[in-house]
Structures are given as structure tokens and as C-alpha cells.
Write a protein that binds this DNA or RNA. Structure first.
Length: 406
RNA sequence: GGAGGGGUUCCCGAGUGGCCAAAGGGGGCAGACUGUAAAUCUGUUGUCUACGACUUCGAUGGUUCAAAUCCAUCUCCCUCCA
């Protein structure tokens, strides 16, 4: 049986490791409990977290036990890593609600049956902790001098770092220690931006418990341009269908840069590596085949096979011509509602295609709008009530929207 | 606590009495070219019942024919000193 570390490395899911040889050996001989922390700062996870979920899934398939840690306690503080500004503080209620909705998303990728994976919330042990007790127990083991040299604080030292945030690292380190005692958790994984926080925890265990503890990070999902992946005009690319529809999600991956195809296939899907290599080696227009596979596979993992098929069908109908349009994003209007908003500009706003009439006006004047495949250039165009009961508005080349009369 | 500097449109950043809906860049959107890619070029980027009108420059009041620009108070941020 292959060592999971080899699998992860092969797929580009390893960035830095401590005591690599020891860890390799450990993972090869026993089932290891490991954890990854997620801060519940929103009610849904996004693509950044998805990489972490894939890592956990690979580990679980190899027989190890993932612990998904919800940062109900640490979210109260806010991680300064990679942020140039201080985060907004969330209320206790907001955090609790976020934890609830995120839990469901994990179940899609991980198997929680029979204790094969655990989910814990660090609020359970951090929030009731006494300050002085904590300082004596944990704080004594940290050197401020060393903490300040950590990469994650460096840029913040120039812009300002509050004492609140400075404590984040210590709290996260304590989490690892706690899980080590409670669940024999020996490894903490995370995005590479978490490296210093993770090290702090592993060091703490080694120092206080005299036991081995490991850290392993995976690279952040970046585009070939070095930008964070998963940004859309409306913000992040979310995993919940309420925030990002499966169709939109599918389209995102269908449209990635050629240069990013290989990375995405290996990091975000379970497709065997030789197939990944074959697909990403395709040239010119052919690489679109690889993008179709990528989009389908990722959508399937996140939203399920049915939704992936629907998204694919909608795409074929729109871009391939003909076919079933049922899955195209749409808005239902009564005939009365339609007549009230029959002006093309109003109709587009009603469908969420544009934010204002002004935006729509520009779009129309620049030739970016088609109604039922007919280019409209008159901003005052009034759309006639369609006899067929529906019509298709197209904004630019890629955005399609159906209007259905109830 | 003391001294100084600052909050401008999605972001960065010009503007210090009328010519300012506000330079420039980034980002976004659209057009051309393409492969639903990238790069490039062009246009556009406050709102509206749109050749005109209305609302914006941290907040509230004031001076003025006229304020993003001047004054007062408040508020938030940054730097230096303690």
C-alpha cells in the first residue's frame, strides 16, 4: 500500500513538513489522528477550504482519522495571518450559526460514520479557560522574541497588530495540545499560511508532553498569476448552493486558465495522476476537454452527481446550441410582473443581470445584450410578452438568463 | 496623557473655493481577436422617468452667490514622545 504522503506529494498537496522521515514512517505503520482547523467566519466554506477537505479525504482513504476543528473560540480573536487589516469581530451567535451550516458541508467529502472522522469546536475548551491559568500553563512556553520573527506577524508589524490577534497563535497551539491529549492527535495540517501557527502547536506538544507531534502544510490554491483562486465578481466561490449556484460553480472551473488546469485537476479531484497528466498535456482548443472534466468532477464532489450533470447539460444547451434549457439560471415572473418590467433595462435588473438601469443602458449601447439571440441596441427597447412563455436574455458572451412566464 | 499627520467614488491615490460626478492606476463590465483560455487593442465604470435632473468626497452644523476644498464640534485611523 502506498504511503499517503506520497499520494499527497504527487498531487501537489504538500508544501512544508516537519520531521518528514519520522512522519512518513508513522503514517506508514499506523492510523494517525490529525486535524485541520477552520474558522467559522462565514456561513459557508469556499474553495480555499475545499483544498483542505481534499487533503482530509485523501488521508481518510488511507486509513487515518481526520478531526475537523471548528474555530468557534479562535474566531472570536481572528487570525492575523495573511491579512493586512484587522478582521471584523464576530458575535457569539454569528459564530455558532456559522459552525452549524459548515458542518453539513463536510459530510459531503468525509465519512463521519463509526468515528472515522470527528468534528470538534475549540470554543468548547477555549471559551471557559481562565486567563491567568492559561498564561501559566501555555504562555510560559512561548518566547515573544521568537513569535515576532514568525512570517505571519512580519507584515503586520509594519501596519499594526493588536494584542488580541497576537494571541491567536498561542490559542491555536493550545488547540493542538488539547487534541493531542484528548484524541491522541499527532499531526496538524493546514494551508501554508498557517505554517507558523501549526509549528507553534507542534513545538508546544513536544516541549510540554515530550511526545512527537508533526506539522504539514499544503500550498494555497493560486492561479498561474499568483493570485488567490476562487475569486469571482461577487466575492468568493462558495461551496453552498445558496451562495454560489452549481451552474456558476461549474462555469468557474470550465473557465480556468490553461495554465491552471493541471494544478486544479490534481489538487481538487481524485482523478488518477496519469490521467491528470494526459488531460493537462492537451494543447490549444483541445485543453477544453480537460476543463470539462475538471468542471464536472469538482462540481460532482461539491454538489453531487445530479447537480453536476444538470450544470453540464445547461452548459451544453447554451454553448453547444439546442438541447434542454431547463437548468439554465432563470427567473419566474407572472405576466403582470413581466408587463410592469417589460422595458429591457428593468427586466435585466429584475433578473439580477445588472445592478442598475444605467449599467444595463451602457451594456445595451455597447452591443452586449441579446434577447432570444437578437442583438438589441436600443436602450428603450420594450420586450414583448413571449408567446412561448419564455425568453432568453444573454449578457455578453457567457451569461445567460431565462425569463419564464408563470 | 502630549505632539503631529490623515479619512475622496469597488480598491489604491490626485484634487486645498467655482472649469469636479471629481486626474491617474488597479479591478470590474462590454466590444474586437479567440478555444466559454491567456495576452493585446478599444470603449465603459454614482443614480434616474437620461442631450437634462438628482445624490456623493468620515459625521453633524456653519461661512459663502458657490465647498471635496474654509471654520467649529464629533468620530475613526496612523506616526513620534511618555
Amino acid at each position: 500500500m502506498t504511503n499517503v504522503l506520497d499520494t499527497l506529494k504527487e498531487r501537489g498537496l504538500v508544501k512544508q513538513i516537519t520531521f518528514e522521515e519520522d512522519l512518513y514512517e508513522l503514517l506508514g505503520k499506523e492510523s494517525v489522528s490529525f486535524y485541520i482547523g477552520f474558522d467559522p467566519t462565514a456561513d459557508s466554506l469556499h474553495v480555499g477550504h475545499y483544498v483542505a477537505m481534499m487533503v482530509m479525504a485523501h488521508m481518510q482513504r488511507a486509513g487515518h482519522r481526520p478531526i475537523a476543528l471548528m474555530g468557534g473560540g479562535t474566531a472570536m480573536v481572528g487570525d492575523p495571518s495573511g491579512k493586512s487589516d484587522m478582521r471584523k469581530m464576530l458575535t457569539v451567535d454569528e459564530i455558532a450559526a456559522n459552525v452549524e451550516s459548515i458542518k453539513k458541508q463536510f459530510a459531503k467529502v468525509l465519512d463521519f460514520s463509526e468515528g472515522k472522522a470527528l468534528m470538534v469546536n475549540n470554543g468548547d475548551w477555549l471559551l471557559e479557560k481562565k486567563y491567568v491559568e492559561f498564561l501559566r500553563e501555555v504562555g510560559a512556553n512561548f518566547s515573544v522574541n521568537r513569535m515576532l520573527t514568525a512570517e505571519c506577524y512580519k507584515q503586520r508589524l509594519e501596519k499594526g497588530l493588536s494584542f488580541l490577534e497576537f494571541n491567536y497563535m498561542i490559542m491555536q497551539a493550545y488547540d493542538f495540545l488539547h487534541l493531542n491529549k484528548e484524541y491522541d492527535c499527532k499531526l496538524e495540517m493546514g494551508g501554508d499560511d498557517q505554517w507558523s501557527n501549526i509549528l507553534a502547536g507542534a513545538d508546544l506538544i513536544r516541549r510540554k508532553e515530550q511526545k512527537p507531534a508533526f506539522a504539514c502544510t499544503f500550498p494555497l490554491l493560486l492561479t498561474a498569476q499568483g493570485k488567490k483562486m476562487g475569486k469571482t465578481e461577487s466575492g468568493a466561490l462558495w461551496l453552498s448552493p445558496e451562495r454560489t449556484s452549481p451552474y456558476e460553480f461549474y462555469q468557474y472551473w470550465r473557465n480556468v486558465d490553461d495554465a491552471d488546469v493541471e494544478n486544479c485537476l490534481s489538487m481538487l479531484t481524485f482523478i488518477p495522476m496519469d490521467e491528470v497528466k494526459r488531460l493537462s498535456a492537451l494543447k490549444d482548443a483541445q485543453i477544453n476537454e480537460a476543463k470539462k472534466v475538471l468542471a464536472f468532477e469538482v462540481t460532482k464532489l461539491v454538489h453531487g452527481e445530479d447537480e453536476a450533470k444538470k450544470a453540464e447539460a445547461a452548459t451544453n444547451a447554451l454553448f453547444g446550441g439546442g438541447g434542454n434549457m431547463d437548468e439554465t439560471p432563470s427567473t419566474e415572473l407572472t405576466a403582470a410582473e413581466f408587463n410592469e418590467n417589460a422595458g429591457l433595462l428593468q427586466l435585466m435588473v429584475k433578473c439580477g443581470l445588472t445592478k442598475s438601469n444605467g449599467e444595463g443602458r451602457r451594456l445595451v449601447q455597447q452591443g452586449g445584450v441579446r434577447v432570444d439571440d437578437e442583438k438589441i441596441t436600443d436602450a428603450n427597447y420594450v420586450v414583448p410578452l413571449p408567446e412561448s412563455g419564455e425568453l432568453l436574455i444573454r449578457k455578453g458572451k457567457k451569461v445567460f438568463h431565462r425569463v419564464v412566464i408563470k
